[in-house]
Amino acid sequence: MSVNTLVLDCRNVTAHYELGYGVRVRAVDNVSLSVRRGEIVGLAGESGCGKTTLMRTIYRDVTPPLRVLSGVVRLQATDGEMVDLYSLSEARLREMRAKVISYIPQGSMSVLNPTSRIRSQFIEIFQKYGGVRKDEALRQVKDRLRELGLRESILNSYPHQLSGGMRQRTVIALATIMNPRIVLADEPTSALDVVYQRGVVEMIQKIREMYGTSFILVSHDMGLHYQVTDRIALMYAGKIIEVGKTDDVFSEPLHPYTEGLINSLPRIGGSKRLEGLSGLPPSLANPPPGCRFHPRCPYRMEKCAREEPPLLKFGDREVACWLLEGKK
């Protein structure tokens, strides 16, 4: 299997919340994103820009008022076989959700069952999808915990007895126990302090190295993206506006929003006065015409208010901005 094998290919996906009375929240609008094997892709953007909705769409966790209007989400079910997630039967989808794609929603406490021990939560998953006996399941769980550097004693704990960092690492171990090809991790460290955050991140990197698992890491924390991700996609008001190799994007942001965001990050040792971006993120129920960033953009042109810029390709970078039209 080559390194460049696609694990997830999401093309032109549009998903809106249809709230009735003609109110439509355009949370995900014509978004394309692909993830290769063993890759950690970051999804960055401010709160309310559609990051979580995009994850739910990729996981086919779509319940009204959310509705997918167009687009294709393809997943690598087995080596060399891409399947369209939205054409699968419910039974096949359930199977895919443990073995191929795993989703860790925000807030680890809400993932674990507070009334049962960690041990039974691991075994339950094994019995449901692994088809092995209980003692065999327990042996495999213990092996896995050892590989990931977690103590066996956590199995006897209830979720509330673990510290936040340990609980989050347990959730990740649980989500990856069936060796999925891709894990969607939504703000896995946002409630944690920096030291624990680093522990969680090290575990994600270890899982990627050991099992070749791909990750989409959703976070509003740009520092985390810089530390962990291979590629980064920036979302603004329901659109992906820039995608590229993380180091390239940080050293030379091309979209004015990315540039503003990166320049507003405080740096230790720096003494420069920092200015935030002016203005506010738009409402997704009533986004501005043309480029959705144009009311806040310091370089806006007449065209920006009229026409929406497509995601243009420059080598391995993609940027949706009229400033770059015709440049190579």
Binding site: R151, Q161, L162, S163, G165, M166, V194, V195, Y196, Q197, R198, G199, E202, D221, M222, G223, L224, Y226, Q227, F250, I262, L265, R267, I268
Partner: peptide, 24 residues
């Protein structure tokens, strides 16, 4: 030192591993 080393900075990458406390 541990705290400052663990900051996800945007100008320098983490080096080495971190030791995390067991419980609070």
């Amino acid at each position: 030192q541990l705290l400052i080393d663990s900051i996800p900075r945007v100008d320098r990458k983490w080096a080495g591993k971190v030791k995390v406390a067991v419980t609070e």
